[in-house]
Design a protein around this nucleic acid. Structure first.
Lengths: 202, 202, 202, 202
DNA sequence: CATGAATGAGATTTCATTCAT
DNA sequence: AATGAATGAAATCTCATTCAT
């Protein structure tokens, strides 16, 4: 399910040493893309931070874009995994919502590059970018539909709600986690959850 | 419509011919920045589309970034003006909210470049980018605070709500207006407004 | 009929200065391609010899290949013009043949790069390369056909003869002009012409 | 068939396995050099086609050029052997000439890479390139001198004639064998031979 | 004001060759 | 002998910006 299926990699390393080098490059790429954006991120910068020669980049990636794409995919997978895991055994939709939101905030606190990388994706590979959001929306839709079916929520248009909730989370994350470099205070989470609870109530 | 606070412009043109040239360049820039993103947009491309010589760009803007900044400012102003105007004489917060939302959708339908330009701004001038959202948030905050004070809404943390509403609108606009190139169907707007109404109800 | 029809040029210079620069670059390119071959010829080397900045190359040619192509075309045109002019008012086929041969030798003595450039063309643009020879062959064919029709020559397969004569001239030119940097001695020319005379006699 | 005078090879393989690997590499090199030319041919491409690791190339050749040189030598030897063998027991110069020509056409039909490889040689190792032609010319000269001495041919300058004949053969081969991928039709060979016969007649 | 040429820094990518295993 | 990773120099090309006319 994860990035090993990514067929865009030039050639997956066959030795342990190779694997290590590839990881170093990807890690550096995450940093640099996050800091400078796709266009301003240069292979020189990436390889320097990874402490490898410029040419080594091309041992593992056919070009700049491929590394970027792999990064987006891998972050996207990581985020969805983290959020899914967070839901745990909760059953009430609202409890799941709260935990997911917190998991999301935690994830981006760890990977602050995510925001900037995803937003750059819009200009690098539009489909990739849309897919990122579509996939997250799908998660919301599935959860919401179940809850509606179970009579737990009002019978709203789940698509609209999914994108609304995603927008909320995204902007709260940007405002507090990204810009202030901290988890949002409880008051924010409580307010947001109350808003959601009532907005979706039957 | 555009306030001349833009102090980064070299010198505003004095002749009518100059003004026209400047406008042509800015219009071309909006197109090109929107299509290609800041980095990939080139002065050659902009001046070609504007049908002026490359050098003429520098008659009106000290550099690429200045033109971009002015564009962001001008779009930002335009958007806020449109939304404010839309509110009109409505008094109920919800009615204002609905009209604003629709005005927002209309504006970006006209200026689809707005999204892409604003998102590029993150990598060109971070302050500019944050300001764009902060200013819009301020508008929300003001309105919400009044409504809360008037007892029209529940006593929620207005900051959180402002960013949530902005996120909702932003994502719905992206999903329907930007990606599908149309105003969202009524069902979307209705669902969103119901959600807001109940979420904010006392 | 000449290179002004070459549509591959990025943009023909509009000013006198521009025209001069373009010429300087082409002249340098002829040198460098001739000395080093297409692949080893670098834009740096070309622009240095032309005493212009690297970027200026791209003001006049979209890429390395375009400059090369134009060069081949222009040399090809030059050669054919020189040979045609040399024939002058001679009427006997053999006299024309002798003058053409000498004109050919003179031309390549002036443009020793021609050989090497044309041979590189095989790897740069195969059609271009073939055209070069086909066009020259055409010239031979036309002349031969007339002479045959006039009963001046034996009724041989003109195509075969054309390519044979071209091959002879090419190799004699390579052996004496190119490698020894001199016009072939009279003995060579006389022998060759005697060979041709008898070989083609009725 | 290949003489091991190639002193530039690192060390000839001692095991059978080694010999096989070396051959695989050379065969691949012939292909790749023929298709892409010397500069564009890459070691990666060669070793991939030979199904060996990149490093293995350097087990058998000190560098790219050495492999190329060996290839040229080996093709050159092969060609001369084939042509010599074809002459067989013929005694008339013209009969020998005809058989040689046909043998030449046959050889290049089998080794179409020959042309392209030899022409690349001009830019890789000029001496090698000249030697290739000089050696072939020598063969012609020897044969012609004998025929002249035997009173079979007119007393022409054999050097000039040798290079002329070589040029003819080369161009006919290029035009029909290389470009049309077939042995030249009989009419071509007959015309060429008639031309030679009369041109060289006493 | 407007034009278009000129500049040169910097970016991506390729590839022969070396080296550790 | 063979493998595949690592290296780094060099090449092509782009483009914001400056300048002469």
């Amino acid at each position: 399910m994860n990035q090993l299926s990514s067929s865009e990699s030039k050639s997956l390393p066959k030795t342990a040493r190779g694997r290590r080098t590839r990881e170093k490059i990807l890690a550096a790429a995450e940093q640099v893309f996050g800091e400078l954006g796709y266009e301003r991120a240069s292979i020189v910068e990436i390889t320097q931070r990874a402490s490898v020669a410029q040419g080594s980049f091309y041992t593992y990636f056919p070009n700049k874009q491929a590394a970027f794409t792999e990064l987006v995919r891998s972050l996207s997978d990581g985020l969805r995994a983290a959020v899914t895991a967070a839901a745990g055994t909760e059953t009430s939709r609202l409890a799941v919502e709260r935990r997911s939101l917190i998991a999301f905030f935690n994830f981006i606190l760890e990977h602050k590059s995510l925001y900037r990388i995803v937003r750059q994706a819009e200009f690098v590979d539009e489909e990739l970018y849309r897919d990122y959001y579509r996939r997250i929306a799908q998660g919301y839709v599935r959860g919401l539909r179940q809850a509606v079916d179970a009579g737990e929520l009002a019978d709203l248009d789940v698509d609209t709600v999914a994108w609304s909730l995603m927008g909320m989370a995204d902007f709260l994350g940007m405002r507090w986690v990204l810009w202030e470099d901290q988890l949002p205070p409880d008051s924010v989470i409580d307010t947001a959850m109350r808003f959601v609870r009532d907005g979706l109530a039957r």
